[in-house]
């Protein structure tokens, strides 16, 4: 094994003692763990992993549907296993977190004015929640009909 540490750009080169030192503060890999806002940011970004997991499960479900009633019944049984329920509980929490943070971005993305006065933030975000409710209701109605 190579025990000698390779010289990095952080140490000044040998040919002159007046070479400027690079200012490169080392940031810990865990920089996001110790502040609520940073943690929230990383959790929000991680919600995308559960979005992808949902797509994978949906593709598997479509494949089961295509393979006939027995395959579909087997897949429904798998969805009842504790592991699948646990994954879906965590996914649901993350996806709702994504939805809320996404909807609440609307007031930052666009400044809506009514008669020259800026609308309060919750009035700009509110239509998102209305659409969310209506669309969720419509999907549930179509599936449960």
């Amino acid at each position: 094994m190579c025990a000698v540490k390779q010289p990095t750009t952080r140490t000044a080169p040998a040919y002159t003692e007046f070479h400027p030192r690079w200012y490169r503060p080392q940031v810990s890999v865990y920089w996001w763990l110790f502040q609520r806002q940073y943690l929230k940011f990383i959790l929000r970004e991680l919600s995308s992993v559960f979005v992808a997991a949902f797509v994978v499960i949906t593709l598997l479900q479509l494949n089961a549907l295509r393979n006939g009633p027995e395959a579909y019944a087997r897949f429904q049984q798998w969805l009842q296993t504790p592991a699948a329920i646990a994954l879906n509980v965590v996914s649901f929490c993350f996806v709702v977190f994504h939805a809320i943070t996404w909807f609440n971005l609307a007031p930052s993305a666009m400044a809506v004015r009514l008669r020259g006065k800026p609308l309060p933030d919750f009035m700009v975000a509110a239509p998102n929640y209305a659409v969310w409710l209506v669309v969720s209701g419509a999907v549930a109605w179509l599936v449960l009909r």
Binding site: I57, T58, Q76, L79, N88, H98, S136, V139
Partner: peptide, 17 residues
């Protein structure tokens, strides 16, 4: 993802199983 996925996970991942 924000508008559609929550209701899908709720129905197919939790409510039906």
């Amino acid at each position: 993802a924000a508008i559609l996925i929550p209701v899908h996970i709720f129905l197919f991942g939790l409510a039906f199983p």
